[in-house]
């Protein structure tokens, strides 16, 4: 399912391209080191890396919540202002607001008309399967439901790209599987571009059309892996041999990424040293 001859695809303009992006915190911590990456329209890109390797930092840079210390982030020049949705590691809901008002927030801030926002909120609620909970308060919901609200809020602006920071890490496995299935299908229908951060090999393979493996801090792209199984994926995929084999390979890539030397000196063989890359396109 991978490492075969790459299919001949017409060149696509990436939605966003990171060129040699570094980020040093004022404390002196180098969180990201000359990281380059591009996100293509319609792909479900999962970023896999150990805790503390700079995944959250990377998403915050892309979202414009922080500035890179070095390097550039380039957005595709397709007219209008870039729209992005962000799902944090925690649900990050306003406890004083009902589910529907939490989801409406981005539209309210943008002064979208009430009729238009009502329609969009309804659509987002249907997307994540929260019908009937519109008037509930966050504290009345389970962890999984809160995360659904958070996802609905990110979808309500119909984003060009959805950034998700380990959104399911705190959930129990059964809830997580359900949310992963639902996310896989809702990202498929109106083709969404998703950049999904995780520290779980299984999750990265299950959801991703492409898995990018990051090295331990400072984060760099250590390897890349394409998962060719068609989306949306369901429970059958989870037990398929193709899935298990892909997980095995990604685990191996992650294991060798963990052994990468801290500074990547150009090796005599040229190129980028010991960088294991399977099926680079």
């Amino acid at each position: 399912m991978t490492a075969g001859a790459p299919p001949v695809t017409p060149p696509v303009t990436p939605i966003v391209t990171l060129r040699g992006v570094s980020r040093t915190y004022p404390s002196g911590t180098l969180a990201l080191d000359r990281l380059s990456l591009s996100v293509e329209p319609g792909e479900f890109l999962t970023l896999l890396g150990p805790s503390g390797c700079g995944k959250t930092t990377l998403l915050r840079l892309i979202a414009g919540l922080a500035e890179p210390s070095d390097g550039r982030i380039e957005w595709s020049p397709d007219g209008g202002a870039r729209r992005l949705g962000f799902v944090f590691q925690e649900p990050t809901l306003m406890p004083w607001a009902r589910v529907e008002d939490n989801i409406r927030l981005p539209l309210m801030l943008a002064a979208v008309s009430p009729a238009e926002s009502a329609a969009r909120v309804g659509e987002a609620i249907a997307h994540v399967g929260l019908e009937g909970f519109e008037r509930a308060y966050p504290r009345e919901l389970s962890g999984g439901m809160k995360m659904r609200v958070s996802i609905a809020r990110a979808l309500v602006t119909r984003p060009q790209i959805l950034l998700m920071d380990e959104p399911f890490a705190a959930l129990d496995e059964i809830t997580r599987f359900k949310l992963e299935n639902d996310l896989s299908s809702l990202a498929h229908r109106p083709r969404l571009t998703v950049l999904f951060v995780t520290h779980s090999v299984f999750e990265s393979v299950y959801l991703g059309s492409r898995v990018v493996v990051l090295s331990p801090r400072p984060g760099r792209v250590a390897a890349e892996f394409r998962v060719d199984s068609p989306a949306p994926r369901g429970e059958a995929f989870r037990t398929s041999s193709a899935y298990l084999e892909a997980c095995r390979q990604v685990s191996a890539l992650l294991a060798s990424a963990m052994d990468l030397p801290l500074t990547l000196a150009p090796s005599p063989s040229g190129g980028e040293g010991t960088r294991p890359t399977s099926d680079a396109t």
Binding site: L84, F88, M94, L105, A110
Partner: peptide, 24 residues
């Protein structure tokens, strides 16, 4: 802090962040 970031992300004005986030 994450809610503050969220408001920033969605382009909230200073007044909106005050009225709809900090005050409640």
């Amino acid at each position: 802090k994450n809610l503050v970031d969220l408001f920033r992300l969605y382009g909230a004005t200073r007044w909106q962040a005050f009225r709809y986030l900090r005050l409640p």
